[in-house]
Design a protein around this nucleic acid. Structure first.
Lengths: 110, 110
DNA sequence: CCGAATCCTTTTTGATACTG
DNA sequence: CAGTATCAAAAAGGATTCGG
């Protein structure tokens, strides 16, 4: 029997959860998934209501992990758009299943 | 249209993810789910290979959130058993879907 | 055996100020 | 507009020690 506990894939699940846990990251994922079209930095920042530091960090991490695509245009001033990758969109059902779980077990998580 | 972004349920999804992100917690969940029977504190501690501080914290948080059941027996010395609740077992498919996602997109999460 | 208490380190966060 | 730099506070982690 395979020792599921030591399956290296679980280390990557850990990393995924760690990523999702960063502040505002899930929120960014959700609004981009909802929109399904590129969004500007300033709009994302306004909607998630956070500092530019935090938004920059989250978008950087998402891009670094292949979950968002950054497109920059040489307008003056520059405009930058972010959109989800296919991989990120494929994550939606997982997030939905977490959503369903907390709805079904209306427990007050601490 | 409902503003999905401000849906209060998402605050609880955040809490769930935050819980799952704690060190060793997912590991504890996995081994208990795999065993499907009560396990002793010392066995859990040995398998996840962590300090008693950490194991105690995680089991406390899991119990507090209705994910594990703690049963203590007045043997000498005392023996304490932990097992997953039905709610926790219902979380397995969600975790499985995260597993599937990281397998499918063999990205190296950072 | 099963923890609780203490204490110190590391990580994450976000406010503020600044720049091309 | 879209960030970077700095920095202090908060949260989380874990080693060690002690107790019923």
């Amino acid at each position: 029997m395979v020792n599921i506990v030591c399956d290296p894939t679980f280390a990557r699940v850990d990393k995924l959860i760690n990523l999702l846990n960063r502040s505002k990251l899930l929120h960014i994922l959700l609004i981009l998934n909802l929109k399904q079209e590129p969004m500007r930095f300033s709009d994302i920042k306004r909607i998630v209501d956070s500092s530019s530091t935090t938004v920059t960090r989250r978008l950087g991490e998402l891009e670094e992990n292949g979950l968002v695509l950054r497109k920059s245009y040489s307008t003056i001033p520059v405009s930058v758009y972010y959109e989800l990758t296919k991989e990120a969109n494929n994550l939606a059902p997982t997030i939905q299943s977490m959503y369903d779980w907390v709805v079904e077990h209306d427990m007050e998580l601490i």
